[in-house]
Design a protein around this nucleic acid. Sequence first.
DNA 1: CGCTTGTTTGCATCCGTATGCAAAGATATG
DNA 2: CATATCTTTGCATACGGATGCAAACAAGCG
Lengths: 356, 356
Amino acid sequence: MTKTDPEALQLRHKPRTARELARLMGVSQSAVSRAFTPGSSISPELRQRILRAAEELDYQPNAIASMLSTRRSNIAGIVVSEMQNPFYPSLIEKLSRGLQRVGLQSLMFNITRGSNIEEQLLALRKYNVDAVVIISATVLSGASLRWATEGRAAVLVNRTIPDLSLTSVSCNNIEGARAIADHFYAIGRQRVAYVAGLPHTSTNLERQNAFVTRVAELGMRLSHCIAGGEYSYEAGYRSALEIARGEATDAVFFANDILAAGGMDALTEAAGLRVPEDIAVAGFDDVELTRWPHYSLTTFSQPVDAMVDKAVELILGQLANPELAPSHNPLSGELIVRRSTIGGNTERLPLEPANT
Amino acid sequence: MTKTDPEALQLRHKPRTARELARLMGVSQSAVSRAFTPGSSISPELRQRILRAAEELDYQPNAIASMLSTRRSNIAGIVVSEMQNPFYPSLIEKLSRGLQRVGLQSLMFNITRGSNIEEQLLALRKYNVDAVVIISATVLSGASLRWATEGRAAVLVNRTIPDLSLTSVSCNNIEGARAIADHFYAIGRQRVAYVAGLPHTSTNLERQNAFVTRVAELGMRLSHCIAGGEYSYEAGYRSALEIARGEATDAVFFANDILAAGGMDALTEAAGLRVPEDIAVAGFDDVELTRWPHYSLTTFSQPVDAMVDKAVELILGQLANPELAPSHNPLSGELIVRRSTIGGNTERLPLEPANT
DNA sequence: CGCTTGTTTGCATCCGTATGCAAAGATATG
DNA sequence: CATATCTTTGCATACGGATGCAAACAAGCG
């Protein structure tokens, strides 16, 4: 037994590989590897000795080499676009933390109009990510999605693919849109409008269909159904002006909060209407600005934490069993009623605490 | 010469390694490797033949293996926090695109109160990132920064370390704060206030010092200098209320736009003041909401594109020459004057186009 | 034509870790 | 105490691509 004196170790240069550390300690490289591999066959004593020496000498296993050996990268690719919508940064942050908790580092892939999508998806495969989380509502066709995710765990978050070929997690948009319609009805509105976001996205389609359907069921009149075209303040602003100029309307459901913010400003400041007295406004997502006193926006809160947990769970499931059948997983959200639909004391201007 | 019939290739199973592809084509594995390595010694004909076959057969070099071989990961770690400030998502997006343009994939490391910072920094080293970009204004001490970036290219963006031990790129906060002070002076304000963001951050300190100094130089009175405590809407809101209750003030410089937004809402809606007639408001960053008609906020625009370009350039420089001395690189921004300081036609409510 | 110089190509080996297998050691059983 | 069983350790090799070196080949020159 070559029990090496710790003092002596200090003197030599830092070991950069398991082999070097092993030589210094008089053990085999396998032992070092096993010390760092939970559940591998090694005695607790030796493991402790190695780990302590490793810490002492500032040695860390080379993740790249270990990826090559195990053919597991422990990396999850997060495919993102529309970072300008504040809903996403917080989702991504939570997601990346959730993935980290189960040992997956997040590699971000920004898909934008400017970037070369093909190349991005190629990178996804080149880097051998074990899992892919797709948050981008847009841009990617089902076919390229399937290609990009072929042979690895994959989850769509906040979007779905109708044919159920890929697992998805989302807020229950249908429930949400119905809740908004019900709320409009409950506060006595009769002529309601919908302002759409990005066309052809599942979020938008689900919200629109559910809302329109529910509005009809409740016997309210759908005065406008406007294609905002994108989820932006400007689109909301423009759409609201259109509504203000057109058929009388006493409540508007914007497909998300950013649209609603733009819409509200247009209605109050450009069109001179009072919210909610003349016209009620609701959004979707419950991003931070909905809590700002100026907006105090009624909205449907996406269960972000639950969505993240579910997404991580689904990924772990797929990693454990690659044959797992895809599933859609809509999660319940919550209607948050604020002054933009029910009015209230504007004097006190309660400043709601953040809930991050 | 074993010129293989393309048709025949089709029949076999897809090659997953260079060796397999090589065998299929009757060339050596080295040849395949060289075909994918720009500047390596291989005839144009053979390279073409191999690349075409690779495309045909959907073969791609394994990035992990190549990292191990070359000890270059072609990955840049981006250390981030405060994603809730909309300034950062857009910066990150541009940065990640800029890095991609030079062949670096971005690996995101979220540093937040909740997450285990040590572990994150460890991961930075484990994954052998070639370069580190640190955007997080907070949390990290100079010592841990140096440890995390030891032996690799590193750039701080939007923060600096006084001792010049790490290269940094930032907006020229001093120029910006002076410009705001000059502007307040130019529009005839005399009693001005400063609302700070995160204490101890270089952004905040530079802006505060420069502003306070310039205010004195111009003979204006600094009526308040409030510690907002963080860069948030709430902090701005609270600070503004304090100002409204305290010594008379006719202009406020908030350390960033989010603070300013909260402050403006507090001043107009809670304190009943008119902006800019009673009190002018300015922010810093030029995030999207400054263009919203409701805010139309005078601000100092950070040269994000230039900062990204510079950061990428500095990283390339360090990669080419690891001995490169660290440098600070403040870049000039631009004062953007809007209604929050000069007033103007509120009727037309011009909706400025986005400039992304 | 013989020799030099330059270009292509393949061979062999290395990058740093993981792991199947067998040897060695420890513990239990009869 | 000998043998069977289980645990711990080391050896050897694989993961997939990069690259120094030498062989093979082509071109240039006197």
